[in-house]
Simulated assay, not measured.
Amino acid sequence: MRNKWKYPSHHSELNQLRFKEKQMDYVLNTVQADPCPDMTNPKKKIIFKRLSYLTTAAAALFMLIIGSTHFSLDMAKAAAKIPYFSLFIKQEEYKYALYDSIQNVINEHQYQVVDLDVSIPKKKITVSLLGSKAEVKTIKADVIANINEELVSQDFGKYKILVKKGERPDPGPELTQEEEKYITDSVELEKKILHLLAQHNYTPAFPIEARINSMENFIYIALPNTESKQRVTELKELLNTVTKDYGEFRMRITSIDMKAREQELRWGNNIIGILAQGLMSNKSFQVTGFSYSFHPYPLQIKVKTSVQSTDPKAKELAEEMINEMKVFIQTHELTKDVRNDEYKVIIYGKDKEIILEE
């Protein structure tokens, strides 16, 4: 049977990956066989626990090239024709697992860390510690040794670690008694409003907001658009009663299309976040902005790029982005509940003209 997975014969960045034939074969064989990862090896448990949504093919490729100083998601995608967002999720989960390992060391040794910066492609970590220069210098060698020992034990390999003196972040001004009372009253009023809504069978479409401060007193409630005008009027009267001890309020009661709200709940911040961060992280996509709206229905996603809409390659670039989004939405485990959802994607050029709309 013909192998559906293959490496492109010509790609400007492929040679930078420094793949050998046996490494390419390993990745392609993994794609075809799709075996379960070896969870019996205790050293690999943390990594694979955090990579639960990753395709085995993407994992195999990523593990082979993650240490390369030339690594980029675009290069990896080109190398094995693996869906871009699968590799992006893999990178993020790998990064979180790496941070977990470092945090374990920090907690165990009670290091006073005020800032931590990690570059996976450069295999470099910068740790900023509280204390005098002399104190930081005294424990510097131990910090480097302990972090690298943990990383090696979890199969991340050794990193170049820079330990330096950090500064305690400014906590900001303390709250005044008046500001503390505003917060207490806001929380108290919100609880009363929630009780009132439940008592009178109102189901808010979004979390309510009750805000009391020196600028204004404000209440926001979103109701399903199935509520009658009479019920909305009655709610306003009930709110006037429950707020009378807190002063006058500006109230905003909106009507929400529950079909749109249900779609919003299905997609959540997770799927939208992956699309936004994934597109922005890939330099070849040249994305400069990402926005979305579920209201009105259906979901509309807008992507801004630094490419002129008249550029001969603009449409090809837009098609590639939309195709990668479609593949992710239609095939990834995370998106199984939204595959039949209606949505629209609009790609804009630098000149604010539409390049492609689907």
Rank of each mutant, 00 (worst) to 15 (best):
K4I: 15
K6N: 13
K6A: 12
P8H: 07
S9M: 13
H10V: 15
H11Q: 11
Q16L: 14
L17Q: 02
K20V: 06
E21G: 10
K22V: 11
M24L: 10
D25N: 15
D25M: 12
Y26S: 10
Y26I: 04
L28I: 14
N29F: 13
T30E: 11
A33G: 09
C36P: 08
D38V: 02
P42G: 03
K43D: 15
K43Q: 08
K44R: 07
I46V: 13
F48I: 13
L51A: 15
T55E: 03
A58P: 00
A60E: 10
L64V: 13
S68V: 04
T69M: 09
F71T: 00
S72G: 01
L73P: 05
L73Q: 00
L73N: 01
M75K: 14
A76L: 00
K77V: 08
A78Q: 07
I82R: 05
P83D: 04
F85D: 05
L87A: 10
Q91G: 09
Q91L: 12
A97T: 00
Y99G: 02
I102A: 08
I102T: 07
Q103A: 12
N104H: 12
E108W: 13
Q110V: 11
Q110C: 11
Y111N: 00
Q112S: 14
V113A: 04
D117I: 15
V118D: 07
S119K: 02
P121N: 03
P121Y: 02
K122L: 11
I125M: 00
L130D: 05
V136S: 02
I139A: 06
V143T: 03
A145P: 10
N146A: 11
I147W: 06
I147F: 08
E149P: 00
E150P: 03
E150Y: 03
D155K: 12
G157I: 07
K158P: 10
Y159R: 01
K160D: 15
K164R: 01
G166M: 05
P171V: 06
L175T: 06
E178F: 03
Y182K: 11
Y182T: 05
T184A: 15
D185F: 09
S186D: 06
E188M: 11
E190N: 13
I193Y: 01
L194A: 08
Y202C: 07
T203I: 08
P207L: 03
I208N: 05
I212H: 03
M215W: 04
I221D: 03
P224N: 00
T226L: 05
T233D: 14
L239D: 01
T241V: 13
K244H: 07
D245I: 01
E248G: 09
E248S: 14
T254V: 06
T254N: 10
S255T: 13
S255F: 04
M258P: 02
R261E: 12
E264C: 06
I274W: 06
I274T: 04
L275K: 08
A276P: 12
G278C: 08
S281E: 14
S281W: 05
S291M: 02
F294G: 02
P298F: 09
Q300I: 15
Q300R: 13
V303I: 12
K304P: 13
T305K: 01
S306K: 14
S306D: 14
V307A: 04
S309C: 03
D311C: 00
D311E: 14
P312Y: 07
P312N: 09
K315V: 04
E320A: 15
N323K: 12
N323D: 04
E324H: 09
K326W: 11
K326V: 11
L334T: 10
V338W: 01
I347E: 02
Y348L: 15
E353T: 11
E353M: 14
I354N: 02
